[in-house]
């Protein structure tokens, strides 16, 4: 499957990165999407999950909001020709290199203007084969981690054969139970979300 670039890197850290892209289409990018970005001159590919999408305003757009029956040409000009300040934040959940998949923070973050791409279905299935990718999400602070876990697991399950899905989610539930054994209210809430 051809790789689909969806934006370019604005800023990054080993724990995650923020990229800019044009106006969000119905499908990409969306919350919980698996994306990848190169690091170490392409020797490593960081795998991440989109956890926040912010569309900043600007004075020009603010002025236009009050216009009744705004013709389509103005809307398209703002969306397609002007630089819509749209920022997408990603949590790093692992990386790929010559040795295979690693469920740890990457050795280096990506660099400004690096291309960010959607992960293919095959990459997502391979990456989520081990549930260790959940560890970095569950440990993340200041972001909707539980929503992200639920979204990632739903995606990963949906990309597997129908008869494998219940078993996959059950294993994920067990994994999360081990990680959150000290926080039963959170565990209960998360298990409910996965089973929905």
């Amino acid at each position: 499957m051809a790789e689909i670039p969806i934006g370019r890197m604005l800023r990054s850290a080993t724990t995650g990165f923020t990229f800019g892209c044009s106006v969000p289409e119905p499908a990409v990018p969306i919350f919980g999407t698996f994306v990848k970005a190169p690091a170490q001159r392409g020797a490593t590919h960081i795998i991440g999950l989109i956890y926040d999408i912010v569309i900043e305003d600007d004075p020009f757009v603010r002025q236009m909001i009050a216009t009744p029956d705004l013709p389509e040409e103005y809307i398209l000009d703002q969306r397609e020709n002007r630089q819509v300040p749209l920022e997408v934040s990603v949590l790093a959940v692992g990386y790929k290199n010559g040795d295979g998949v690693n469920y740890a923070l990457p050795p280096q973050p990506p660099i400004t203007l690096d291309s960010v791409e959607l992960c293919s279905e095959e990459e997502i299935v391979t990456f989520t084969r081990s549930l260790d990718f959940l560890r970095l999400i569950l440990a993340a602070r200041d972001l909707p981690a539980d929503e992200l876990v639920a979204s990632a697991l739903q995606q990963a399950a949906a990309m597997r054969p129908v008869d494998e899905r219940p078993r996959y989610l059950k294993e994920a539930g067990r994994y999360i139970a081990r990680q959150l054994s000290f926080d039963l209210p959170r565990l209960d809430n998360l298990l409910r979300r996965i089973s929905m």
Partner: peptide, 14 residues
């Protein structure tokens, strides 16, 4: 410069 085509429902050319 910008070419704005009223009534076509298309983005202008810049």
């Amino acid at each position: 410069s910008i070419v704005f085509k009223h009534g076509l429902g298309k983005a202008p050319e810049c």
